[in-house]
Simulated scan of single mutants.
Amino acid sequence: MIIGRRTLVQGALAAGLAGPAPALAGQETREDMAASIRLWPQGAPGGAGVTVVEEETDRSPPPAPLRDRIIKGVRDPDLKVFRPKTPNGASLLIAPGGGYRWVVRDKEGYECARAFAAAGLTVYVMSYRLPGDGWAAGPATPLQDAQRALRLVRREAGRKGSGLDPARIGLMGFSAGGHVAGCLSLMFDEAVYRPVDAADRLSARPDISVLVYPVATMRPPLAHAGSRQLLLGKDPTPELEARWSLETRAREDAPATFLLHAADDASVPVENSLALEAALRAKRVPTEMHIFGEGGHGFGLRFTHGKPVEVWPALVLSWWKRRGFI
């Protein structure tokens, strides 16, 4: 059966996924007050030399139609939990973007969480520490948080009576958050921190992965220069670049991966996704990729209206269904 764009958009609308709902405009909602889970109850590892102060900035204060908050200097990363009215048993961990300079809260975090929660998923939006803030782990700092976050999501799914399946934990990342998610998908079993509790005995491997306009390579000329410098420093060695380039880390046991990018992305070249898809396919990892002619960078949900890329949430839902994830 051939599914047309109209059908996809109608399906997305039915699931509340074709764009931000009016209730989101310029105000707090009950989801914004969702439960929080601290990643590191006793403090994040390797913070002895960290002096940054965590702060949230609203770049579009009222009367802007939608909030646009960012978090700088993350010191106490957490998960914000968005619970659906009718859970389907699957969980989703979201890593928003921000170029490794900050972490976006609304556009690629809360808005997408609400939309996918409306489709039945229990969604966790993570904040993560930034590698340029002086943490001892350096480039591995966001990976520490991502591994810990996935394990905590799996712990929550394994709790008696949760109604969630610990074998159906999905991952979604945007832009630099796509690099965080990609690192987790490909380096889930690397020992990047000392275990702190029983949750760290759980697997950090996501069961399925969605990367949206991801920063993938750290090698010029295709690397996103800002993310590369903040992650690796001003003059990284070729070995360090390769270590943190997703296309060099593809492995046979990586989770099935969905890639989404716009060809006119002027910030993160579409070749980032193309190279990663080729590397995953060479390892026989089940992979689906969608390249749209227009959409730019950072569209999330709010900047898709009237463009072909508007159907991306429906494409993801369709892929999840075909893969048996939902």
Score class of each variant (00 low, 15 high):
residue 283 K to F: 07
residue 291 I to R: 14
residue 294 E to M: 12
residue 266 A to F: 02
residue 292 F to H: 03
residue 262 A to E: 07
residue 277 E to G: 10
residue 296 G to N: 08
residue 294 E to T: 15
residue 281 R to I: 03
residue 265 D to I: 00
residue 260 L to F: 07
residue 279 A to G: 09
residue 261 H to L: 00
residue 271 E to D: 13
residue 296 G to W: 13
residue 294 E to R: 15
residue 278 A to H: 11
residue 284 R to C: 05
residue 273 S to C: 06
residue 291 I to V: 15
residue 261 H to N: 11
residue 264 D to E: 08
residue 270 V to P: 01
residue 279 A to N: 04
residue 296 G to Y: 08
residue 279 A to S: 10
residue 288 E to S: 15
residue 294 E to Y: 14
residue 264 D to N: 13
residue 268 V to A: 03
residue 266 A to W: 02
residue 292 F to W: 13
residue 278 A to D: 12
residue 265 D to A: 01
residue 275 A to F: 15
residue 282 A to Q: 15
residue 284 R to Y: 14
residue 261 H to E: 02
residue 276 L to Q: 03
residue 280 L to C: 07
residue 296 G to I: 01
residue 259 L to A: 02
residue 275 A to H: 14
residue 286 P to M: 08
residue 296 G to K: 04
residue 258 F to G: 01
residue 278 A to N: 09
residue 275 A to L: 15
residue 293 G to P: 12
residue 268 V to Y: 00
residue 258 F to A: 00
residue 273 S to Y: 01
residue 260 L to Q: 10
residue 282 A to L: 11
residue 274 L to W: 09
residue 262 A to R: 12
residue 279 A to V: 09
residue 258 F to C: 03
residue 258 F to K: 03
residue 266 A to K: 15
residue 270 V to R: 02
residue 278 A to Q: 14
residue 290 H to P: 04
residue 273 S to N: 08
residue 288 E to I: 02
residue 260 L to S: 06
residue 296 G to C: 10
residue 258 F to D: 01
residue 285 V to Q: 12
residue 269 P to A: 07
residue 277 E to Y: 00
residue 266 A to N: 15
residue 263 A to V: 11
residue 279 A to K: 00
residue 275 A to N: 11
residue 291 I to D: 10
residue 293 G to N: 14
residue 274 L to Q: 10
residue 296 G to Q: 10
residue 274 L to K: 09
residue 273 S to E: 07
residue 279 A to L: 08
residue 270 V to S: 07
